[in-house]
Design a protein around this nucleic acid. Structure first.
Length: 289
DNA sequence: CTTATCCCCTGCCGGC
DNA sequence: TGCCGGCAGGGGATAA
């Protein structure tokens, strides 16, 4: 159920796992992974290509590949991965390790011509998706073309947020989660950021005071950086998994006291998603004066 | 155009 | 113990 921090951590792990490796072959166990997407490039891209690098944009992972000879390092193919709700990538040093019932895809790796393990795509709910496209056209993929600026790499300025919110009546939380507005924030990040800045998630975006929009703009990258570094230090991927640093101030804490003021946390639904806020710290109406 | 609702899937949890 | 509804951090399609 990854949001930007988990996807970024995946990207960092992939850089370690795949450095200097090639993809010798692949197996798709669940055709739903492609969801009818064009598979024309799969064989060319995933049989004998070198891994050149890993990028992340919003919640998408981009694995750049080339089938050109050693020395020519312009990517030709990009494997695009979206983990959606329950996806994750797992590296097995030895292919002998068994697959799970949730394995959707295997990439068989080599290094210097020798077998070098396997990268597995695991996905319980099967919402995850994978595309293979020519690198030059990767951002023409509709899913990528519609994304707003990455919330971490190109954090939105207060000015941009003000423009995004102008005249928009839907709740500020729904706007923050809109991937065409800014790429990468999910339900938890939106909830936690709004709690930190003391803004009710239900306030129409156009009614959020300017100084709160400035606070939101500052807090988004702060929260993301903090969540990423907290996870990375512990070699974990998923926020909230056992042993993880607790980055949930109020998420999934309905009925518990607000960590800041002690008021009972409330659960509501916004944009069809479970939403948590503190009615005292995050009032509906903020005094603009 | 904007906004709301449903759908895709499987697993888990609490209540009865 | 078993069944059932509700819920889950994703986004897309569709309807109003």
């Amino acid at each position: 159920m990854p949001e930007l921090p988990e996807v970024e951590i995946h990207a960092r792990y992939l850089r370690e796992w795949l450095a200097g490796k090639s993809i010798a072959d692949y197996t798709v166990y669940d055709p739903k992974l492609l969801d009818g997407a064009d598979s024309a490039f799969w064989d060319a891209a995933l049989r004998g290509s070198r891994v050149l690098g890993i990028r992340r944009t919003a919640k998408y992972l981009l694995i750049d590949l080339t089938d050109a000879p050693e020395g020519e390092n312009t990517p030709r193919w990009t494997l695009v991965v979206h983990l959606r709700m329950t996806g994750k990538l797992v590296y097995d040093a030895y292919v002998a390790e068994s697959l799970s019932k949730w394995t959707r895809l295997s990439l068989f790796l080599t290094e210097n011509g020798e077998p070098a393990g396997r990268l597995r795509f695991e996905d319980i709910r099967r919402f995850g998706r994978v595309w293979v496209v020519p690198t030059e056209q990767v951002f023409e993929l509709p899913e990528l073309a519609s994304l707003g600026p990455d919330a971490l790499q190109q954090p939105s300025s207060a000015e941009r947020l003000k423009e995004l919110c102008a005249g928009v009546r839907r709740p500020i939380k729904v706007l923050l989660m809109d991937q065409t507005a800014l790429g990468g924030l999910g339900n938890i990040c939106a909830i936690e950021v709004l709690h930190r800045v003391g803004v009710s998630p239900a306030i129409p975006a156009c009614q959020v005071p300017e100084d709160r929009l400035e606070a939101i703009a500052r807090t988004i990258p702060e929260y993301l950086e903090w969540a990423i570094s907290a996870q990375e230090r512990r070699k974990l991927i998923y926020l909230g998994e056992p042993g993880a640093v607790n980055v949930f101030g109020i998420y999934a804490r309905a009925g518990e006291p607000c960590p800041r003021c002690g008021t009972t946390i409330v659960r509501t639904v916004l944009g069809g998603r479970g939403t948590f806020h503190c009615p005292a710290c995050q009032p509906m109406l903020v005094d603009a004066s």
